[in-house]
């Protein structure tokens, strides 16, 4: 949470906070044309997600509603919106940036923590079972080469991913 607190303390408004992050740079260009919304396959099947509204809420500074809400996790990352946005708002990236903020504050859905722990343990987000490993030879596939889990651990600690994740575990 350090970074979010730092930014809050620095008096950054929420749109500025998002815009200052990797992925969030383009958020302020949005002029609410709604191209993203009609591009979005998820918005069309649930009232709980609408990229246009998510950006609008963020631009109005409704930080808590955005960060603690369900919506940011409902993006299916299909990039249809981003592809067609006439203002070149990188909407999918903005949503990643919002998720990154949520994660820093310990708000993270269980499936994501499963991915994270698998990553830290095996170097893969999905574990390869012993059964499947054995099956490879019967199929005539070469044995799997070891993953670079050690290097990965060092990268994750360099970026602070480890700490983020541990804090989430404590919660």
């Amino acid at each position: 949470m350090e970074r979010a607190e730092r930014e809050k303390a620095a008096g950054l408004s929420f749109p500025e906070e998002v815009a200052s992050r990797l992925g969030g740079e383009t958020i302020k260009l949005c002029y609410q044309c709604g191209t993203c919304a009609s591009s979005c396959p998820v918005a069309k099947i649930t009232p709980n997600f609408n990229p246009r509204e998510l950006i609008k809420l963020s631009l109005l500074g409704e930080r808590d509603e955005v960060i603690s809400g369900d919506a940011i996790w409902l993006c299916c990352s299909c990039y249809n919106c981003q592809e067609r946005c006439p203002q070149k708002v990188e909407i999918a990236e903005v949503i990643y940036a919002l998720r990154n903020i949520a994660f820093e504050e310990g708000r993270i859905p269980p499936i994501y923590s499963e991915f994270a722990s698998a990553l830290l343990r095996d170097g893969r987000i999905i574990k390869v079972s012993k059964f499947v490993e054995k099956k490879r030879s019967t199929l005539g596939l070469p044995p799997l080469k070891p993953t670079g889990v050690e290097a990965l651990t060092r990268i994750l600690s360099a970026t602070g991913f480890n700490k983020l994740y541990e804090r989430r575990e404590r919660k």
């Binding site: 996790w73 990352s77 990643y96 990154n100 080469k145 993953t147 990965l152 994750l156 970026t159």
Partner: peptide, 28 residues
């Protein structure tokens, strides 16, 4: 050719957690 020491590519689930990490892992 199969390379040793590869890892997860850092797809959207990892990007959701931290964009910088995902870029670093992919770059690795």
């Amino acid at each position: 050719v199969d390379l040793a020491e590869t890892t997860c590519c850092a797809p959207p689930p990892v990007r959701s957690i931290d964009l910088e990490t995902s870029l670093a892992v992919a770059a690795y």
